[in-house]
Design a protein around this nucleic acid. Sequence first.
DNA 1: TTGTATGCGTTATCAA
DNA 2: TTGATAACGCATACAA
Lengths: 332, 332
Amino acid sequence: MATIYEVSERAGVSLATVSRVINGTAKVSEKTRQRVMAAMKALNYRPNSAAQSLASNCYNSVGMLVSEVHGPFFGEMMSGVETVLRAAHKHVIIAAGHSDEQSEKEAIEFLRGRSCDALILHADAVSDQYLIDLAKEDDAFVVMNRHIDAIADQCISLDNRHGGYLATKALLEQGHRKIAYIAGPLKKTDAKERLQGHKKALREFDVAFDAALMREGDFESASGAQAMSELLKAGKKFTAVVCGNDEMACGAMNTARDAGLQLPEDLSIIGFDNVIMSRYTFPHLSTIDYPIGEMGRMAAKWVLKNIYQQDDIDIIHHFEPSLILRDSVKAK
Amino acid sequence: MATIYEVSERAGVSLATVSRVINGTAKVSEKTRQRVMAAMKALNYRPNSAAQSLASNCYNSVGMLVSEVHGPFFGEMMSGVETVLRAAHKHVIIAAGHSDEQSEKEAIEFLRGRSCDALILHADAVSDQYLIDLAKEDDAFVVMNRHIDAIADQCISLDNRHGGYLATKALLEQGHRKIAYIAGPLKKTDAKERLQGHKKALREFDVAFDAALMREGDFESASGAQAMSELLKAGKKFTAVVCGNDEMACGAMNTARDAGLQLPEDLSIIGFDNVIMSRYTFPHLSTIDYPIGEMGRMAAKWVLKNIYQQDDIDIIHHFEPSLILRDSVKAK
DNA sequence: TTGTATGCGTTATCAA
DNA sequence: TTGATAACGCATACAA
């Protein structure tokens, strides 16, 4: 592999000049610029990124932690991040935390070890304090789907509580009173907040929360199916069910139908996230829109602005959920 | 940030010795090893990865090209790759090619520019020749979902043609004769091969391929919905439809039902890929299993074996599709 | 506008 | 088992 030194020799200039044309850091006469370009092309020269990083202390790469690499939610988020960052010629390194505290910490250390210039973290198992402490050591990171007061500038979040509220309220407004709830894993902040919103809506309509009508899943389809199966078996009547996310809602719908229920006649259902699939279920799933793709793009912009000094960027830290009413909810 | 030099000073040894305990490349007495470890801990030392890479010419990172970062198929693939590679302490850098030739080439160059040690490529727009030429320059890459004879050792593929054959055969065996086909984008090899398999099955059952019953989509749900809509509007009768992948099948089912058809009574449908969602559609989608997660893990192992010299690994280059019969197919 | 010289933090080759 | 010392390939302050 050709080095910058060989290029300089062939072009008959110093290696500093070659570096200048590569980086455009200083004026170079058009004539020598051409000569250098020609030499680079002739030698099929590519800068050695390790040497660049070492000399400049800039890695041009950003680490991204997600709970899981698969799944529609994280797919949209990663896609948003990748799009913005690659347009800016920054590399995106991915790691999964699997919603386990130890695993998340390891993943974060793994990413930091690679000397990423910045981190985009969708961490749902580590404590607020851990992230606050991390920020004291090195604050080159942005947190997704989570608001932490002490590092509010580094957070891009959505009001999950309000989303949960909207979902249940939609059901209540359609006359439902016996409403089951299939929660996400309650060790996760967002799942907890969505449940809080659910309870708030119930209170507003003077409906008592019934723990017997609640089950906890893990945000994946299978757990939604399992939860619905349990709910049905328990025999306690309910006319609607709120799910912690769309994937569990799909699983739940599936089980309900296999059990012979007509949807939405016998049971109304609402999800959360508005993942692409929710448009194609039967019946079409009502849900809460979570603009995760846009938030991923925003996180990438945060990095561009705060780490790579692209000042002409406005950052939105807070996004709002909104109700998407489709066919899976029917008036009681 | 502390350097190896500061560590060596504090531990009272040379920097070479520190490097040895970091990498375990040579014998170091237990006593000095302890001293060095203590010094590293005290200084909160982390090796500078750029310096390591520069000196060792090893980056510990692997580039991964996918068509899109979102989507269930690529999610499973990326997840498989990430799992294996991170366990081996290798970083994975993602890039999307968007199934566009120019864009894919750019993405590959982008990844190469980062001096990844190896590349895992799901490229569906560049030509075979491009990849063959690339291999001549630098063969540290493995190709997914594509078999190219000239670089067969670098390919991990699935017999898409056979998969397409199995799908249509399943329908034919159930007595269907008027079978529509919603293809993936035919510029992609896999979409083309699946269609070939479809035609082969038709021939075997002496059924003529009817171009009027075919539409081309782009592998995303919306295009399946659109294609079904066109097919229905065209008015030509068909009792079953084969879809190029599960996502388009979901879109197609959706449209068919919205048009008043009973599934699977009025129309049988089969997809391809066996993505998670296919288990949760209504009716449950029959499909062709594509073990993409396993293939992603295998690609990662290929890299471990061929690039990082982990010799005790067996590589499987060829995977077989298999029929998954669920409820969306009914005998005619 | 261009060149010189130094440093970036490691690994690896020799000696000792 | 340990220590000097020379790469590794580039960016950049300083000179010219």
